[in-house]
Simulated assay, not measured.
Amino acid sequence: MRIDPVSLRLFVRLAEAGTIALAAEQEHIAAAAVSKRVSDLEALLQTSLLTRSNKGVELTSAGIELLALARAALHELDQIPTQMGGFSSGVKGLVRICTSTSALAQFLPGRVNQVLRDHPEIRVHFQEEISTLVPRAVNGNAADIGIFTDDVAEAGLEIHPFHKDRLVLIAPQDHPLAGRLQLSFVETLDYDYVGFSHDNATQIRLMRAAEQDRRQVKVRVRVRTFEALCMMVSSGYCLGILPEEIARRHARAMDFAIVPLSDAWAERQFRIGVRSRAALPSAARLMFDRLCDGVA
């Protein structure tokens, strides 16, 4: 017996669906056929891949490992037609980019669009994640290219410096700090904040900066988006920290003050990373090279 792509695709579908019945329905085959394929894989690999119950299936440790390998193998197989087609009609294919929200909201779309204009046969899929999860997506072959901030461990990726931005304070117009030309972060810690989730890269940076002065950031409200944070500050409630470009963009429609931070850590270096440049499909390799070449 050999492992075939059909069995791997059914296994991935089952892992994502959670039940044999749903996987069979999505693949338009009999449930017994899905079960048989997985059983054959288990027999071939001599290990249990799933635990079955009346609620569905759960992956064993071996199943989790096979899921990552299967996705990688299937992705390589899917790239064969597009990569071979590139010999006759230029570079083509799908490029999967996992990126932090800040990068996607600021500078990344413009740079990617420059490549797309020059290469009409290249398609891009953006996967938006918090910076801390981006390297994991690249290492797990859920993405070809990752964009994340410099305070995130790159987990053995090939990395290059990419783009810099700067964090600024935003405050209600009537706030005591709103009229300052510049201030240090520690001067703001007596006031309440609107913040992001605990695992957000910007929030982690603020927490670490406060801890250096043995202080804490007093987060009264947590939100998920830049727009929501700006709306809370504009309505007269608390302070916020945002990338300057995003703050100025939202300030055109909302009423809040922008105050530069004097702290060195307020300048952030984004990085671009891949598992292996040499192993990238041609479209992803071209995108990676062009993005790296475009670094200011």
Rank of each mutant, 00 (worst) to 15 (best):
Ser131Trp: 00
Asp144Met: 04
Phe162Ser: 15
Pro161Cys: 11
Ile147His: 02
Asp165Trp: 12
Leu133Met: 03
Gly140Tyr: 10
Glu158Gln: 15
Asp144Tyr: 02
Asn139Ala: 04
Gly146Lys: 05
Leu157Gln: 11
Pro135Leu: 02
Ala142Lys: 13
Asp165Met: 10
Ser131Cys: 15
Asn139Lys: 07
Asn139His: 01
Ile147Tyr: 03
Ala142Ser: 08
Ala142Gly: 10
Val152Asn: 05
His160Asp: 12
Arg136Phe: 04
Leu133Val: 00
Glu154Tyr: 12
Glu158Asp: 15
Ile145Trp: 13
Ile147Arg: 02
Glu154Lys: 09
Glu154Cys: 10
Ile130Ser: 04
Asn141Ser: 07
Ile147Ala: 03
Ile147Asp: 00
Ile159Pro: 03
Gly140Met: 06
Ile130Leu: 11
Asn139Met: 09
Gly140Gln: 12
Arg136Ile: 07
Leu157Ser: 04
Asp165His: 15
Thr149Gly: 14
Asn141Glu: 11
Leu133His: 08
Ala137Gly: 03
Val152Cys: 05
His163Asn: 13
His163Ser: 12
Lys164Ala: 11
Asp150Pro: 01
Gly146Thr: 01
Ala137Arg: 14
His160Leu: 07
Ser131Tyr: 07
Lys164Tyr: 08
Asp165Pro: 07
Ala155Val: 00
Gly156Asn: 10
Arg136Leu: 13
Gly140Cys: 07
Ile159Gly: 09
Thr149Ile: 04
Ala143Ile: 03
His160Ile: 03
Arg136Lys: 04
Asp151Pro: 00
Glu158Thr: 15
Asp144Arg: 03
Gly140Lys: 09
Pro161Ser: 14
Ile159Cys: 15
Pro135Asp: 04
Val152Tyr: 09
Ala155Gln: 12
Leu157Arg: 06
Leu157Phe: 10
Asp144Lys: 05
Glu154Asn: 11
